[in-house]
Simulated scan of single mutants.
Amino acid sequence: MLKYRTLDTPTGPLTVVVSPTGAVRAAGFTTDVADLLSLVHPSLLAPAEPADDVGPVARHVRSYLDGDHTAIDAVHVEQVIGGSFISHAWQVMRDIKPGSPVTYSEFARLSGRPAAVRGAAAACARNPVALFTPCHRVLRLDGTLGGYRWGLPVKTWLLAHEAGHSTAAVEAGVVR
């Protein structure tokens, strides 16, 4: 049985779905648990119920929001996809440092396939554990935000928070 909890953040609700071992299987800036469960690979899917206790995940999110931008690195995630490139890219994405976003081209290179820019973008788009596998840290080639499943205001806030800048600075392209 999976458990889920919705946490309050400055950008709105963040719902996390965790396994019996406490690994995050889905996360997103929404209260729509069904939408999140649709992102989970069928081999990891199970019924989910609300819970007050989702292990240390809530504590790590709170620490992240309080300024310890590496706190979410300690959260274990379980992600599965059919292709090996995307699975590998998700692991690489977890190594992108807060405050140091990369472009899709750089992300493809870091993932070992410099020509796979579309594959890098697909890894971001198919990421079921937003925040913990930080697809928000990947930008367009020109340094602009690009897309984000949970909305550009959320992505803008996350990047500004991690860089220690205002969201206006991120929106204006001053911060990358």
Results as ranks from 00 to 15, higher is better:
P153H: 07
R62N: 11
A48R: 01
L37P: 07
R140Q: 14
P47Y: 09
M1T: 14
R118L: 14
H88A: 13
P47E: 15
D52K: 10
P42K: 09
I96S: 02
A160C: 09
Y148C: 05
P114G: 03
V24W: 01
A51H: 05
W90S: 00
A51I: 07
V54I: 15
T11V: 15
T30Q: 06
S166W: 02
L139Q: 02
G12R: 04
V18W: 02
A23S: 15
R140L: 14
A51V: 05
R140T: 11
S87G: 14
V77Q: 02
V102Y: 02
G99F: 03
V170L: 10
A58R: 01
R109E: 13
D32G: 06
P56F: 06
T31P: 00
E171G: 09
L110G: 00
P20V: 07
E106V: 08
Q79R: 15
A121S: 12
L39I: 03
R118I: 08
S166I: 03
F29Q: 05
G164F: 03
K3L: 13
R25T: 15
L158A: 09
P134N: 08
K155D: 11
A71C: 11
G55E: 04
H76E: 15
V17W: 05
V40T: 05
S100N: 13
F107G: 00
F85I: 00
A89C: 07
A23K: 07
T156H: 02
G12Q: 02
V92M: 04
G67R: 04
T103K: 03
G55F: 05
S87K: 12
V117H: 00
V80S: 11
Q79Y: 10
I96H: 01
S43V: 13
L159A: 05
R137Q: 09
R109I: 01
V138E: 05
R94D: 09
L139D: 06
D8A: 15
T144C: 09
P128I: 03
L131D: 09
G82E: 14
V40M: 08
L110A: 12
V16M: 08
H60N: 11
L37W: 05
Q91G: 15
S19V: 02
T156M: 07
V16F: 05
M93P: 00
Y104D: 10
S43M: 10
H136C: 04
A27Y: 06
R94K: 14
A121D: 11
G55H: 04
G112A: 06
H88T: 07
P47M: 10
